[in-house]
Nucleic acid binder design. Structure first.
Length: 531
RNA sequence: GCGCCCAUCGUCUAGUGGUUAGGACUCAAGGUUUUCAUCCUUGCAACCGGAGUUCGAUUCUCCGUGGGCGCGCCA
């Protein structure tokens, strides 16, 4: 019988700035996985870099998560408070011989360095390796690794180094094919009892080994051990390094699945060895593809739209953004795209995550946002609209009843909240008439006359949809033009634009006084033949 | 430079050893609508290249090419 441990995942951002769209996507995937499996979603704030971590960043982080409704289970862990535990772990590693002291380059003290273990379950033999070495640079072999120089195409020396474990069965040869050195007993070297510097080496041979782990989205991952370096886990200042803190805390929080950005793949090869050295079983890993900008490049500080808060101020709905971001690098496998939280939770699996980077498409996001806005409860829509309206002078302190009616009328045709900028004509009398509309619909033969007649007729017309329509149609019939032909001229006259909701409804909302005043203004000042 | 990873319409993606390679956004053309939006119909548009395996490769393998990531006493 297999006992399956309850899933525990975490989002572990470092609060050094605004929350990046890629970061929050990692949070979303973690959250989805936790909810899908009935596990727990933890938050760990990695604020060990005290100089760059700010309270403001911590606050915006929590805001962004709350906005996207990413509810956290359990206590939030602040990594800065775990420093003692991290240092203790480093001490144990050093005591057991798994880590060693490293003299600081600037003589400021000793750092602690984790040595890639000589043996591990994660290693796998891949056969012999042969490397050409630059003869003028001596090869050094010590418990801290092997340093050597390869030869570039132009004959220059390229300095390289790798952990000692990467060079099992190492042999160094000179130009006469004489073996100058053989790593016969790694124990002696590992214990720091012997160190070698060998000159005039032109070739090195060793048994290549690689580190292996199974990634839930990328599959089997391998990396040659000789390309891996030992890892500083405590700085010479005495501060624990990310790698140590990260692994220690994941152990303490009993994290079962680490779901994070692709940029951490390389760390994983070393982290699993750290787990090993601490006698812990590594968690499962899932590395998510990166999100890139419209140029196909990673988001940088120059991309203003990379921060979660920006999406909010630009008028996106959190559920729409959540839905869209979920679809970046993941798909349910059928043709569904607009999915509710529940549907997303039900459908989400790590197996279906892609492993190629994907680009944001703001147009598609906006389209989806429009769908979400249209379905929002009126009161929720009003909140967002009110916020966006407050950006405009004419949009503050508006009549509540009118505002509600306008929202009702316009909700279905609003894609982004800032689109409410076009609602001016409902709330203000300072209108800027669309010149194209004026030319096309008002400065036409007969329009002035018909509008005048309509104006007169409206004095005795109820401002309700049906009577308005009837009155307009009567004029049209009298002038022998198609019903509806007069609507656009009227629209331009009373709203100053060519687009909007139904004309009759719009006029009702505008009310008699405003509608007639604008009609008067238009007849007097805007009509007449254009030249 | 070295290492790891990736590659289907412009973009997000589905999919298969034999399919008219499907959907969505965008764009274009129609229809509905008093206009706009919604909605509906139609259209444009993709398997990076080359070898190999195979009766057959977009799919499997290898080699290129392109892209991303990593190579810190940052996280």
């Amino acid at each position: 019988m297999i006992e399956t441990k309850a899933v525990r995942v975490r989002f572990a951002p470092s609060p050094t700035g605004h929350v990046h769209i890629g970061n929050i996507r990692a949070a979303i995937f973690n959250w989805l996985y936790a909810r899908h499996t009935g596990g727990e979603f933890l938050l760990r704030v990695e604020d060990t870099d005290l100089e760059r971590s700010t309270d403001e960043a911590k606050a915006t982080l929590r805001e962004a998560m709350a906005w996207l409704k990413l509810d956290v289970d359990g206590e939030v862990m602040y990594q800065s408070q775990r420093r003692a535990a991290h240092l203790a772990a480093a001490g144990e590693l050093e005591a057991s011989g798994a880590a060693y002291a490293l003299a600081g380059a600037d003589n400021k003290g000793e750092a602690v360095c984790f040595r890639m273990p000589w043996d591990s379950k994660a290693y796998e033999k891949v056969g012999p390796a042969k490397l050409d070495v630059h003869p003028e640079v001596p090869v050094t072999v010590s418990h801290a690794g092997v340093k050597y120089a390869l030869v570039s195409k132009k004959g220059k020396a390229i300095e390289e180094s790798g952990c000692l474990a990467g060079f099992s069965g190492l042999r160094l040869y000179d130009a006469n094919d004489v073996c100058l050195y053989e790593l016969a007993s790694p124990e002696t070297v590992l214990a720091g009892k012997a160190e070698f510097t060998v000159e005039h080496v032109v070739r090195m041979e060793f048994q290549r080994r690689q580190v292996v782990f199974e990634d839930l989205v990328k599959g089997r991952m391998t990396k040659p051990l000789d390309g891996i370096k030992d890892l500083v886990i405590v700085r010479s200042t005495g501060a624990p390094v990310f790698h140590l803190a990260n692994v220690c805390d994941d152990i303490v929080q009993e994290i079962t699945h680490i779901i994070r950005g692709d940029d951490h793949v390389e760390n994983t090869f070393r982290h699993i060895l750290l787990y090993d050295a601490m006698d812990q079983k590594p968690p499962a890993y899932a590395h998510l593809p990166m999100i890139v900008n419209a140029q196909g490049k990673p988001y940088s500080k120059r991309d203003g739209d990379a921060y979660v808060g920006d999406f909010r101020t630009r008028g996106f709905d959190p559920d729409a953004l959540f839905n869209y971001l979920t679809l970046l690098g993941w798909a349910p496998g059928d043709d569904r795209e607009k999915l509710s939280r529940e549907e997303l939770v039900a459908a989400f699996t790590l197996q279906r995550v892609r492993s190629a980077p994907s680009q944001m498409d703001l147009k598609k996001l906006a389209h989806m946002n429009g769908q979400y806005l249209a379905e929002l409860p009126l009161d929720t829509f009003m909140e967002g609209a009110r916020e966006a309206l407050a950006e405009h002078d004419w949009g503050r302190g508006v009549n509540e009843e009118l505002f509600r009616s306008v929202c009702e009328l316009m909700q279905s045709r609003t894609q982004l909240y800032p689109d409410v900028a076009v609602w001016t004509y409902f709330f203000s009398d300072e209108l800027e008439y669309d010149p194209k509309g004026v030319r096309k619909f008002l400065q036409k033969e007969g329009v002035q006359e018909m509008l005048s007649e309509l104006r007169a007729a409206l004095d005795s017309t109820d401002f309700e949809e049906a009577p308005l329509e009837a009155a307009i149609h009567a004029i049209e019939r009298a002038h022998d033009i198609k019903e509806g032909k007069l609507n656009q001229p009227i629209r331009v006259a009373v709203t100053a634009t060519m687009v909007g909701a139904g004309l009759y409804e719009t006029m009702v909302l505008l009310g008699r006084e405003r509608s007639l005043a604008r009609l008067d203004y238009a007849i007097e000042n805007l009509c007449g033949e254009g030249e």
